[in-house]
Design a binder for these strands. Sequence first.
RNA 1: GUGAUUGUAGCUCAGCUGGUUAGAGCGCCGGAUUGUGGUUCCGGAGGUCGCGGGUUCGACCCCCGUCAGUCACCCCA
Length: 424
Amino acid sequence: MTPISAPRGTRDVYPPESAQWNRLEADCREVAQRFGYGEIRTPMFEATELFARGVGETTDIVEKEMYTFLDKGGRSMTLRPELTAGVVRALLEHKLLAQGSQRLFYIGPFFRYERPQAGRYRQANQFGVECFGAAGAEADLEVIQIAALLLARYGITDAVLNINSVGDKVCRPRYREALLAHFRPHAAALSGDSQRRLERNPLRILDSKDPLDRPFVESAPTMLDHLCPECRAHFAALRAYLDALNVAYVLNPRIVRGLDYYTRTVFEFVSSVIGSQSTVCGGGRYDGLVEELGGPPTPGVGFGLGIERFLMVVEKLAGDGAPPRRGFQAIALGEAARERLVAVAGALREASAAPTFADWESRKLTAHFKTADRNGARWAVILGDDELAKGEIVLRDLIAREDRRLPLGATAAEVAQTLVEATA
RNA sequence: GUGAUUGUAGCUCAGCUGGUUAGAGCGCCGGAUUGUGGUUCCGGAGGUCGCGGGUUCGACCCCCGUCAGUCACCCCA
């Protein structure tokens, strides 16, 4: 019988890698709360209609990447392909916007049916923030700074912030017309992909990598030249704020995000070290989204940061420094000692936050030390017949390579207390 | 979804134009050191050669299919 393997495009995370995940998730929460953001958890699946309306009917995500199924009641459900739509749905369902602006963050998986490659999975995880009810560029700055802080904390200096403005309801349609006017005369010369994009979403032609398109893309009008006065002012304000905070960025008039709901500011943090799936964090402003989903007109801005990609960058950049040694390795030599030490180890685990490792198999001392090294233990707690006879327990400093003999107290709790104090 | 490429021990890989018991390094277990570790030396365990068919006297090697990884496109986190 062939063993069952994880579905295509999914992966398992287990020690020691899972420790990196724990750390990153803790840091995401810590940074988000510095900005006054609270966590929101929404369902992993939602009514299909939510994504069709929220993300956009003609986006690739909705057209071909969703995990959609009928539940037993015949309702069409979809594994969430992104998290923003669900957050907005929850906001409206619980009328949270009636209480004023909302600052929320989330961490969790999302699902897209795509051909996997490095940095692209069918189930991936995202940390994201959403700020609702703040129309000004201050909010754009705020969410960008959250991402920037997180990248800086991990020494990811290689990721560069790209920003652009895609305009709003009034100037984007006009720009679209200008683009059509520019590309249409050359339609026959464009790449096959771009010919298709021409009528559906001409903005997409801008980030085509096909050399056939290059000359026409380079001479194309840019969105920035077509912004209405309000959008222009908003973008200028954001740039001034970024400068004031010393956040480095490059103006990239060709970034076009794949979701329909973006307005005005769009941005991406792009790393050069993880291959072609290079966007570590992407986001922007979505002033029309809440209304689109049946809520009151409400501005919003946020981003999603790919946990897997972030960790890939960290690994590429950092390499692996040995983590500091911590905790105890309990080593029993002989049956009587083991019985006594099992209780001591239990008490140690109640008394100390540091880990207590133990291998209760009968092995030679040498083998136990090798295990201690592998576990990264800081101290070895050794109990054998000799110690038992003398009423002592050995505490070995695994860095200094020195033994200390401590009195073996009457109760396990007492021994644990002695050990904790001796290693404080 | 398109194109290319890879799949041999827990990990990284070798295996000559198909030839008989499939190898190495690292890791793991044990011993040298009958109670003192990260080095060294010695020994051992561990493999449906991704899976399924086919060709052949004979297949890890050739052919077909399938699954999975990787790279690029598409797209995006």
